[in-house]
Amino acid sequence: MFRSIFEVFRYRVLIQTLVLRELKSRYRGSFLGFLWSFLNPLFLMVVYTLVFSVYMRNPMEGYPAFLFCGLLPWLWFSTSIIHGAASIRDGGHLIKKVVFPAEILPVVAVLSNMINFLLSLPILFLFLLIFKIPISLSILLFPILLVIQFILTTGLTFFLSALNVHLKDIEQILNNLLMLAFFLTPILYPVTFIPEKYRDFFLILNPLFPLVTSYQDILFNGRLPNVIGLSYLVFISILVFFIGYSVFNKFRDTFAEEV
């Protein structure tokens, strides 16, 4: 298994090329091009702010900035899952016709969306600035959260992409599950909105919970994230990664025949 992970590293030029291809082709031909990586989340933010801050009169200060802290990582996660789950199926022309390390495809899906996420960060900082949210030293933990999220998401996409080759429903089910996860994770609302007695329960059930609240803590609240939550997240992420990769390996030989 570790040798295979090393393989992925050996193929870094290929990964790099495919990520670039993905990013270039995403906005190529559209008029606003790369600006869309700002405009899409901006638009979502406007809608949610209108609903939660204006209509529902949530008194929270700097709600748009808070929203971005959870929304942007969430968008990275959800688009990676959607693209990643379909990646082996969509990459059939490569897997069937060229000698090609299959695990590269889900990794490329996660990485290209990660770069999109990084590119959209300026807008987050702009809003932190607008709402005068001070930036604290805890922001130094950001790269660590990035790595954790990468491991968690990649592990999940390994699992889902392999399964999706055999069970086409995965893509449909995912759309619904992601919607559920989106509302159950404190992205649109602060964690304090959840009654205290359920909080731990949801935290254990949903690894995105500690992930998103950690982002909010270091960016918006200017404090260190909850250590227990974060440790649990690290543990789950690594577990998911290894399970995902083992499942992927188990199905690997069937890809060229099934896609």
Partner: peptide, 23 residues
């Protein structure tokens, strides 16, 4: 086995030569 496997239609011939070559 298949020519141009992995070509991306939106990208130029130049870009595709690099991508395909690396593949």
């Amino acid at each position: 086995i298949e020519l141009g496997a992995g070509f991306h239609p939106e990208l130029s011939g130049r870009e595709n030569i690099f991508i395909n070559g690396i593949i």
